[in-house]
Computed example of a mutant assay.
Amino acid sequence: MSTLPAWPYPRWIAHRGAGKLAPENTLAAFRLGARHGYRMFECDAKLSADGVVFLMHDALLDRTTSGSGTGGELPWSQLSQLDAGSWHSREYAGEPLPTLANLARWCLASGHLMDIEIKPTPGTERRTGEVVAREAAALWAGTPVPPFLTSFQPESLKAALEVAPQLPRGLLLDKLREGWLQEAQALQCAAVVCHYSLWDADAVAQVHGAGMRALSYTVNDESVAQWLWQLDTDGIVTDRVDLFPPD
Rank of each mutant, 00 (worst) to 15 (best):
M1V: 05
M1R: 14
L4H: 02
P5S: 09
A6V: 05
P10W: 00
W12G: 01
I13C: 12
A14I: 01
N25R: 05
T26N: 08
A28S: 14
R31Q: 15
R31P: 02
G33L: 03
A34K: 12
A34N: 08
R35Y: 07
H36G: 03
H36V: 01
E42Q: 11
E42G: 07
E42Y: 12
D44S: 00
A45V: 05
A45T: 04
A45M: 10
K46D: 03
S48C: 04
A49T: 06
A49P: 02
D50P: 00
F54I: 00
F54D: 01
L55Y: 14
H57V: 06
H57R: 11
L61S: 06
T64F: 12
S68M: 10
T70I: 11
S77D: 12
Q81A: 14
L82P: 02
G85N: 10
S86A: 07
W87A: 02
R90F: 09
E91A: 12
E95H: 12
L97K: 11
L97T: 04
L100I: 03
W106H: 12
C107Q: 10
C107M: 08
D115N: 15
D115R: 13
I116T: 04
E117F: 06
E117C: 04
I118K: 13
I118D: 05
K119A: 07
K119R: 15
G123P: 02
T124G: 04
G129F: 13
R134A: 15
A137T: 02
L139M: 10
A141Y: 14
G142K: 15
P147Q: 12
F148A: 01
T150Y: 05
S151G: 06
F152Q: 01
Q153K: 04
Q153E: 14
K158G: 02
A159F: 13
L161Q: 10
V163C: 01
A164G: 09
A164C: 09
P168E: 08
R169E: 03
G170R: 03
L173I: 09
D174P: 02
K175C: 05
K175S: 11
G179Q: 11
W180Y: 03
A186S: 15
Q188R: 15
A190V: 01
A191G: 05
A191W: 15
V192I: 10
H195P: 00
Y196V: 00
Y196P: 01
L198N: 10
A201C: 02
V204A: 07
Q206Y: 06
V207D: 06
H208R: 11
G209R: 13
A210F: 12
A214Y: 13
L215C: 08
T218Q: 09
S223T: 14
V224M: 04
Q226M: 09
W227V: 00
L228Y: 11
L228H: 09
Q230V: 07
L231N: 09
D232N: 14
F244V: 01
F244P: 00
F244Y: 05
D247A: 09
D247V: 02
